[in-house]
Amino acid sequence: MEWTSIVAIYILFWVVSAFIMLPFGVQTHDEAGIAKIPGQADSAPANFQPKRVAKRATVLATILCTLYVLNYAYGWITPEDLMFFGPDPK
C-alpha cells in the first residue's frame, strides 16, 4: 500500500473519530450548574474542549488505521469472510 493511501485513510479515520468523540465529556450549563446566557440553546456545551477531542480522535484514529493497514498486509479479514448471505463459496 502506498504511503499516500495510508495518510488519506488515516485522515478519514481521524475525521470520523473526531465526530464520534464530540459528545463524550461535554456538559450543558444545567448539568454543570452554570447560569445560561439569555437566548442560549439548552443543549449548548458549557465545557467544550477541542484539544481534548483532537487528542482522543488522534489516539482512536491511530489505532483504527494501524489495524486497517495490518489487516491489509496480513489478510486477517477478507471480503469472503464478510459474505453473510448468498451461496457458500466452498
Rank of each mutant, 00 (worst) to 15 (best):
M1G: 13
E2D: 13
E2W: 06
W3C: 12
W3N: 10
T4K: 02
S5D: 11
S5Y: 07
I6W: 02
I6S: 07
I6T: 14
V7T: 11
I9R: 13
I9A: 14
Y10K: 08
Y10L: 10
Y10W: 15
Y10I: 10
I11N: 00
I11K: 00
L12C: 03
L12F: 09
F13G: 00
W14H: 01
W14A: 00
V15S: 10
V15P: 04
S17Y: 03
A18E: 02
A18Q: 01
F19R: 05
F19G: 07
I20R: 02
I20D: 02
M21A: 05
M21G: 03
M21H: 05
M21N: 01
P23E: 11
P23T: 10
F24L: 12
F24N: 03
G25T: 07
V26I: 12
V26T: 12
V26H: 03
Q27Y: 09
Q27W: 07
Q27M: 15
T28V: 09
T28P: 07
H29V: 11
H29E: 05
D30C: 05
D30Q: 08
E31K: 04
E31P: 07
E31R: 08
A32L: 15
A32E: 15
A32D: 15
G33H: 01
I34F: 14
I34G: 05
A35R: 06
I37E: 15
I37P: 02
P38N: 06
G39Q: 10
G39T: 13
Q40K: 08
A41H: 12
S43K: 02
S43C: 04
S43D: 10
P45G: 10
P45W: 12
A46Y: 14
A46N: 09
A46I: 13
A46Q: 08
A46C: 11
F48G: 01
F48L: 15
K51Y: 14
K51W: 15
V53G: 07
A54C: 08
K55W: 12
K55C: 13
K55Y: 11
R56Q: 09
R56N: 07
R56H: 04
V59R: 00
L60G: 01
T62A: 01
L64S: 13
C65Y: 05
T66L: 13
T66H: 07
L67Y: 02
L67I: 03
V69M: 06
L70R: 11
L70E: 06
L70W: 06
L70N: 06
N71K: 08
N71Y: 07
N71R: 07
N71I: 14
Y72E: 14
A73E: 05
A73C: 06
A73N: 05
Y74L: 13
Y74A: 06
G75Q: 05
W76Y: 08
I77L: 03
I77G: 00
I77V: 09
T78K: 14
T78D: 04
D81S: 09
M83T: 15
M83V: 15
F84A: 13
F85G: 00
F85Q: 01
F85W: 04
F85T: 04
G86P: 10
G86N: 11
P87I: 04
P87F: 04
P87D: 14
P89A: 08
K90Y: 05
